[in-house]
């Protein structure tokens, strides 16, 4: 039992990383990853929603009638998204300004609804918690990585913090004469770099 819970958690971290392995939830992946800070912030917000909605859906899975389950899931998810939005405005307002419209868009993020439908509505609370946390953290590192790569190539340095708790500031990694490759932080650059990262992921065998 303990082993299966651990494997539900770890599968999200590597084997089923949403943007890279499942290629799901690409709207925020492409939209907000102009910097590592935004990527991680978005990832953590999604993790919170995923975790809470997974737990609640799993608790209510016997009560929710099958015919209206999608509507119920959306109510639950939307509630937590608004919670995140309000909390972020109250405690991390600058991050909220950066992420903007992508926070409300977590409601329609297919990863969240996908996990509720495919996993939480069929499994127990503990397993669903592990699943939600794993997938969410996988999403977070994927967004963080993509954001870091784009920020590095596009600006030459890494700078930011996570909710004021962890700070990083690495100026001019490629030396002072480096000229930023502006394409990387523009929208088309997001597609190209995501594609290259997918290539790199596929070079590493998944098992």
């Amino acid at each position: 039992m303990a082993k299966s819970i651990a494997s539900e958690f770890t599968k999200g971290l590597w084997k089923e990383v949403p943007p890279f392995r499942l290629v799901l939830g690409l709207c925020p992946v492409l939209g907000v990853t102009t910097s590592m800070k935004n990527g991680i912030g978005m990832g953590l917000a999604t993790t919170f929603v995923l975790l809470c909605s997974n737990i609640l859906v799993s608790l209510l899975r016997k009560v929710i009638p099958a015919k209206v389950r999608i509507a119920c899931f959306i109510i639950i998810i939307a509630t937590f998204v608004i919670v995140v939005e309000q909390m972020m405005q109250a405690f991390a307002y600058t991050l909220f300004l950066d992420l903007g419209v992508f926070i409300p868009l977590i409601v329609v993020n297919c990863i969240v609804l996908g996990r509720a439908e495919a996993f939480a509505s069929k499994n127990g609370v503990v397993k669903s918690t592990a699943d939600g946390l794993g997938i969410g953290l996988g999403f977070t590192w994927a967004l963080g990585l993509l954001g870091a790569v784009r920020e590095l190539i596009g600006t030459g340095s890494l700078k930011g913090d996570v909710f004021g708790l962890i700070h990083w500031d690495v100026p001019n990694i490629f030396g002072a004469s480096f000229e930023p490759f502006g394409f990387a932080v523009q929208a088309p650059g997001a597609f190209v770099i995501l594609g290259l990262l997918l290539c790199a992921m596929n070079l590493i065998p998944s098992k």
Partner: peptide, 9 residues
């Protein structure tokens, strides 16, 4: 169920 969920939310 839908009503209760919406009201609580």
């Amino acid at each position: 169920v839908l009503t209760i969920l919406s009201v609580i939310s």
